[in-house]
């Protein structure tokens, strides 16, 4: 067992527990975006940062990936954390305003302004889909490629992967695309496009501005 202090409360946890798990166990809320129970932690969105250590050595770390350590002092809502969190959300909002998840997070954390140039990206590279596909669907059909600003998600060689079984798991977990396809069937929050035998997006022209991160789309096979 390891004992650490979170917001002044001592808590014993098992070795291998993350700071996020420990904080949630104590009931301290920490917003997350790229984290999902059942998938391995990845640490991409940086929304879950908490402050550890004291004095000049204090720093922010992503709680979803950082392992609990003996004697660690953790603050989940210091002013430094809140400031960073708001900026992360502002950046997310600037890149992906259409996402319901991001909108909700932003409003829950009182982010009232967005000072960057507005973009409409269809992916924030949170990696949920990749992990879903690999760890839960055991398909490894999609992955990351590139780095920096050209980093993206896709299938090998950008062609429909033999490994993909159109389960729609990737779309289900995607925080950026939840609103994508509800546009023809607004009562459905998740379209399950991949799984849909006759997906709503077959008429390409009609839905040209519909964002889909997989080109060509694994579901509708519309070739760009």
């Amino acid at each position: 067992m390891i004992t650490l202090t979170i917001n002044g409360l001592e808590v014993p946890v098992e070795k291998g527990t993350t700071l996020l798990e420990a904080a949630r166990f104590l009931g301290f809320p920490i917003p997350t975006l790229c984290h999902m129970d059942g998938l391995s932690p990845y640490g991409a969105c940086r929304l879950c940062v908490v402050e550890i250590g004291e004095g000049p050595k204090a720093k922010l770390v992503s709680s979803c990936t950082y392992p609990a350590q003996e004697g660690l002092i953790v603050r989940t809502a210091s002013s430094r954390v809140l400031r960073a969190r708001k900026m992360v959300l502002e950046l997310l909002l600037a890149s992906c305003p259409q996402s319901k998840t991001i909108q909700d997070l932003a409003s829950a954390h009182n982010v009232r302004q967005q000072r960057f140039r507005q973009e409409h990206e269809d992916c924030i590279l949170c990696g949920l889909c990749v992990r879903m596909c690999k760890e839960q669907m055991v398909a490894k059909a999609i992955g990351f490629r590139g780095r920096g600003q050209t980093r993206s998600i896709g299938t090998p060689f950008d062609i429909r992967s033999e490994e993909c079984r159109l389960c729609g798991g990737c779309m289900y977990v995607c925080p950026a695309c939840q609103l994508r396809c509800t546009y023809t069937e607004p009562e459905k929050a998740v379209c399950g496009g991949c799984a849909n035998v006759s997906p709503p997006c077959v008429e390409k022209e009609q839905f040209d501005d519909m964002m889909c991160y997989m080109t060509p789309c694994v579901a509708c096979e519309i070739q760009e």
């Binding site: 990845y42 640490g43 991409a44 969105c45 940086r46 900026m87 992360v88 950046l91 997310l92 600037a94 890149s95 960057f116 140039r117 924030i124 590279l125 949170c126 990696g127 990351f144 590139g146 780095r147 920096g148 600003q149 050209t150 980093r151």
Partner: peptide
């Protein structure tokens, strides 16, 4: 330079550098 060389995993590194550049 860093905009292209960040591995791109951390959202704030990838996007943050792009925004600073902007």
């Amino acid at each position: 330079f860093l905009k292209d060389e960040s591995c791109g995993k951390c959202f704030t590194c990838r996007k943050g550098i792009q925004r600073m550049h902007e």
